[in-house]
Amino acid sequence: MIDWWQQPLAALTDAQWEALCDGCGRCCLHKLQDEDSGEVFYTRVSCRYLDTDSCRCTQYPRRSALVADCVTLTPDNFEALEWLPTTCAYRLRARGEPLREWHPLVSGDPDSVHRAGISVRGRALSEDHVHPDSHEEHIVHWVEEDN
Results as ranks from 00 to 15, higher is better:
143 V>W: 14
101 E>C: 04
20 L>D: 04
9 L>W: 05
123 R>K: 15
97 E>R: 13
51 D>Q: 04
6 Q>F: 02
72 T>K: 13
57 C>M: 09
102 W>R: 03
147 N>E: 14
16 Q>K: 04
88 C>W: 03
132 P>M: 03
121 R>Y: 00
48 R>I: 06
137 E>W: 02
93 R>F: 07
112 S>C: 03
106 V>S: 02
62 R>E: 14
23 G>M: 11
21 C>G: 02
105 L>F: 03
59 Q>D: 13
29 L>Q: 11
12 L>C: 02
114 H>Q: 11
45 V>Y: 02
73 L>S: 10
88 C>E: 04
48 R>A: 12
117 G>M: 08
46 S>G: 07
97 E>K: 10
69 D>N: 14
40 V>P: 12
5 W>F: 15
95 R>F: 00
104 P>G: 08
93 R>S: 13
5 W>Q: 05
10 A>K: 10
111 D>C: 02
21 C>N: 06
68 A>H: 12
138 H>V: 07
71 V>S: 07
48 R>Y: 02
27 C>V: 02
100 R>V: 15
51 D>Y: 01
60 Y>R: 14
33 Q>E: 15
120 V>R: 05
89 A>C: 12
77 N>H: 08
62 R>F: 13
21 C>E: 09
33 Q>H: 01
65 A>F: 10
70 C>R: 01
14 D>W: 03
55 C>P: 02
29 L>P: 04
14 D>R: 13
75 P>H: 08
10 A>N: 04
25 G>C: 12
31 K>Y: 01
84 L>W: 03
34 D>P: 02
77 N>D: 04
3 D>H: 11
130 V>C: 11
5 W>H: 15
134 S>W: 10
117 G>S: 04
100 R>K: 13
22 D>V: 03
30 H>T: 11
64 S>M: 06
8 P>D: 12
133 D>H: 10
142 W>N: 04
10 A>Q: 13
103 H>P: 09
107 S>Y: 01
84 L>S: 07
82 E>V: 04
9 L>M: 12
20 L>R: 00
12 L>D: 05
128 D>N: 12
102 W>P: 08
31 K>D: 00
60 Y>M: 07
131 H>T: 05
123 R>W: 01
98 P>N: 11
117 G>C: 05
22 D>M: 03
91 R>F: 03
2 I>V: 14
76 D>L: 12
126 S>N: 10
107 S>Q: 09
46 S>V: 10
136 E>V: 13
65 A>V: 03
53 D>R: 08
80 A>R: 14
143 V>Y: 06
54 S>L: 14
134 S>H: 14
79 E>H: 02
56 R>F: 06
78 F>P: 04
3 D>N: 13
89 A>Y: 11
111 D>H: 11
56 R>N: 09
139 I>G: 04
85 P>Q: 06
36 D>S: 10
52 T>Y: 00
88 C>H: 07
94 A>V: 03
54 S>I: 00
4 W>L: 10
55 C>R: 05
32 L>H: 12
22 D>Y: 05
51 D>H: 10
124 A>T: 04
114 H>P: 01
87 T>E: 08
54 S>Y: 03
39 E>Y: 05
5 W>K: 00
141 H>S: 11
33 Q>M: 15
1 M>V: 07
44 R>P: 00
60 Y>G: 05
78 F>D: 11
93 R>M: 08
32 L>K: 08
80 A>K: 09
140 V>M: 12
51 D>V: 07
50 L>S: 06
65 A>Q: 15
3 D>V: 11
101 E>S: 15
50 L>T: 07
71 V>M: 10
128 D>R: 14
